[in-house]
């Protein structure tokens, strides 16, 4: 291993200053990616600037939406009941990244900045319309996650800039989400395909306690039939797909096909088919393209279903405040 020096600034300002003065410097957060790259000689920094001790990066703020500091670890997110209940897709993603050992040090900022096509948090962030908060030379600015992601391991950060955090807008009253990570094993995995879905239902014209009837239903097909019969309409939907393109992408055609439509089993299958047609997977040793495409079809349907189920079973009194 080539030698490097290691710096531990306390503030963002200090870190950015170091980056501008030190030669061959790289930021390091949890290190689960950076340290591996260094060990594999894919990265040979002269200096590492650690972001771990910057307290202004480690907040979780749940007032009116959700704001997470980039230094927050996956474990901390997965321990948040609020996130589990309301931003379920994000919970799904962070609670199955790598292993406990990885989640205990890996940070949300690291995951989005590494921007692997398989990065688990990116699909959920896409479906929550997340905004990346960036500390730049001229101050802070924001960038939609969709614009932040440029390609495999490439993000829209200028040299020295630091992702400060990520902001997720507040959710509608009848919103549910899910992330499905399709893997060979149940842990220590990168997804073969990752699918996140968020769906908001228009409950106008339905009684206040409309969910009660649904909660008594065990069978998922019955639930769908009732949604169709009662003519529940999708208000808003997001679907994001990982590992099927150079970067996680939204299935925008599938989203529009869902928008304003009455939920039905047939519709969900159609959505899956459309999403699959929007994916551009490749054959790799980790999975074949045709299979990935098939999984987009199947898992999109399942993710939307899971999101619907969660929405129905969510305790409405605890829903986040709407803006």
């Amino acid at each position: 291993m080539k030698g490097y020096d290691y710096y531990k600034p306390d503030t963002i300002e200090e870190a950015m200053k170091m980056m501008s003065t030190l030669d061959g410097a790289e930021y390091i957060a949890g290190g689960t990616d950076v340290m591996v790259l260094i060990k594999k000689k894919a990265l040979s920094p002269q200096n590492l600037i650690s972001l771990r001790n910057i307290s202004e990066l480690s907040y979780i703020d749940t007032d009116n939406g959700l704001r997470i500091g980039s230094g927050v670890t996956h474990s901390r997110i997965s321990e948040s009941d609020f996130i589990k209940r309301h931003y379920s897709a994000l919970f799904d993603a962070v609670s199955n990244i790598g292993s406990v050992q990885v989640r205990n040090v890996g940070t949300v900022g690291g995951n989005i900045c590494n921007a692997a096509p398989s990065a688990d948090t990116l699909c959920p962030f896409l479906v929550f319309d997340a905004v990346v908060l960036i500390a730049g030379q001229k101050g802070e600015y924001q960038l939609a996650i969709d614009d932040f992601l440029l390609g495999p391991n490439r993000v829209a950060l200028a040299k020295g800039e630091i992702v400060k955090g990520i902001n997720l807008p507040a959710l509608g009253a009848n919103s549910g989400s899910a992330y499905i990570k399709h893997t060979r094993r149940k842990a220590m995995e990168l997804p073969i395909v990752g699918i996140a879905a968020r769906i908001d239902i228009d409950a106008k014209g339905h009684p206040n306690d409309w969910k009660e009837a649904f909660r008594r239903i065990d069978d998922i097909s019955d639930m769908l039939r009732l949604l169709e019969k009662e003519r529940f309409v999708c208000n808003d939907a997001r679907i994001a797909m990982g590992v099927v393109a150079p970067r996680p992408i939204r299935a925008k055609k599938a989203e529009s096909a869902l928008q304003g439509k009455v939920i039905s089993e047939g519709l969900l299958d159609e959505i899956g088919r459309i999403a699959a047609s929007e994916s551009q997977p490749r054959d790799t040793l980790r999975g074949e393209a045709w299979y990935r495409r098939e999984m987009v079809h199947v898992l999109t349907k399942r993710a939307v279903l899971m999101a619907l189920e969660r929405m129905i079973h969510a305790d409405s009194s605890n829903n986040p405040k709407t803006s």
């Binding site: 290691y6 531990k8 390091i28 290190g31 689960t32 340290m35 591996v36 590492l48 650690s50 771990r52 406990v100 050992q101 990885v102 205990n104 040090v105």
Partner: peptide
């Protein structure tokens, strides 16, 4: 619990 093989000693 952490993987000490990836944990920078300076931390």
């Amino acid at each position: 619990a952490i993987s000490s093989c990836l944990y920078p000693v300076m931390e």
